[in-house]
Design a protein around this nucleic acid. Structure first.
Lengths: 226, 226
DNA sequence: AAAGCAATGACAACTCGATGACATCCACCA
DNA sequence: TGGTGGATGTCATCGAGTTGTCATTGCTTT
């Protein structure tokens, strides 16, 4: 679950922001005090910070500075009532990544936050995962087995990624339906079996004797990288 | 000592920029008037020009044009207000090398300026990007295919540039809408398909069998330079 | 007013996931 | 040891959703 830290003391704005971002699937942590906010940031490591300038107590710019010092990779977006150019520059000097003036449109705010998150993610190194004779690059959606390119569908990649992110753990069909398929379309557990079959056919040396995608009778499946 | 010419009339922004770039070892010359700026540019031959659009007197785009006419090799970066994003493409057409929307993060601005300077240094030898039988020059907005000039629209250039900057990575339609179109105007994903179609018709050897602009079913598109 | 271009809508073509039928396997128990 | 019921493997088929493509609309610029 991706966290978003909201630092804001107006309870109405709080509610609005919580609704907005929880509706998009983020977990929202709200802090109204500057010092707590810095601690909370260290605790939950959010993907983005929304910071209202008009805080009581610790000045907003100080909060921004401290968060950026401790976590330069987390994007900080400033919320402010006034759109004064000089303020903007000062704040951005402190390391803030973007600036949104109140009143803001929810959609624009959302777009800016997501753009900032994407930028920060893009700077991360893309890596390939390896298991057995398989090597997979999720950013490129390319997979090689024993040096040969193997093509997977989008769903197959998603399923494979979930297994790779949860190695060794037994995963039930229902969990896979929830986390890989999502709640919008909820097919039967038979569908899961079929996708497992596809993965085995494409990635196992002997699909009849699966070494990586093991079935755990009565429980689900388990991914073994080795 | 490398000079940077800042054309900006807001004294606070001036100060910010001077501090930022002097801290990085550049010599900064500030002009607040458009005509003086053109003269100053001839005098100090800066490695980059930062141009604020909101100038009194001579319109910013005229300044940009004149500087580019006299010194096509000097990179010009536009500082534009958020509300005038629609002008971006137009400005690039005037010869500007990059644009930064206010508010900007100092880090980002610095990075962009340095990137532009680096590019301009490379320019004297090779500033074109090549793939397949295509050769493209973004500064001039010119493109050749098998020696023949091919004309692209501003949007097509922007889209192509995004692909070239993200080679190999699978890029979703939504990401393209966010980063190429921007969140101000947000058409449907169908529009993306159409622009891809245009690029394929103009740049692929066989548009029905795209080699460069691959579609990844259920995920988006992927650019393959090779 | 005309031209150029992006956006939209419609429709065809295609992909791939969902479904159900049937075979097979496994755990459990007699 | 063998039988039984439920769970899982496997395959063929269908259809919803995705994408390619073209025509049209509407906006901007000249």
């Amino acid at each position: 679950m991706q966290n978003i830290l909201v630092i804001e003391d107006d309870s109405r704005v709080q509610k609005t922001l919580v609704r907005l971002f929880e509706g998009e699937g983020y977990a929202v942590r709200v802090e109204s005090d500057g010092l707590n906010a810095v601690a909370a940031c260290r605790a939950i490591l959010p993907v983005a910070v929304l910071l209202d300038l008009m805080l009581p107590g610790v000045p907003g710019r100080e909060v921004c500075k401290r968060i950026k010092e401790a976590h330069p990779e987390i994007p900080v977006l400033i919320l402010s009532a006034v759109s004064h150019v000089a303020d903007k520059v000062l704040l951005l000097e402190l390391g803030a990544d973007d600036y949104v003036t109140k009143p803001f449109s929810p959609r624009e705010l959302l777009a800016r936050v997501q753009a900032a998150v994407r930028r920060s993610h893009k700077t991360k190194r893309e890596k390939t995962f390896n298991f057995g004779d398989v090597s997979v690059d999720f950013a490129r959606m390319e997979l090689q087995r024993a040096g040969e390119a193997v093509s997977l569908t989008a769903h197959e990649f998603k399923l494979l990624r979930y297994f790779i992110e949860n190695p060794g753990r037994v995963i039930s069909r229902v969990e896979l339906l929830n986390d890989v398929w999502g709640y919008e379309n909820y097919p039967t557990t038979r569908t899961v079996d079929n996708q497992i079959l596809k993965l085995r056919q494409k990635l196992e040396i002997d699909p009849a004797q699966p070494k990586h995608f093991r079935t755990v009778h009565g429980a689900g499946y388990k991914f073994s990288p080795a």
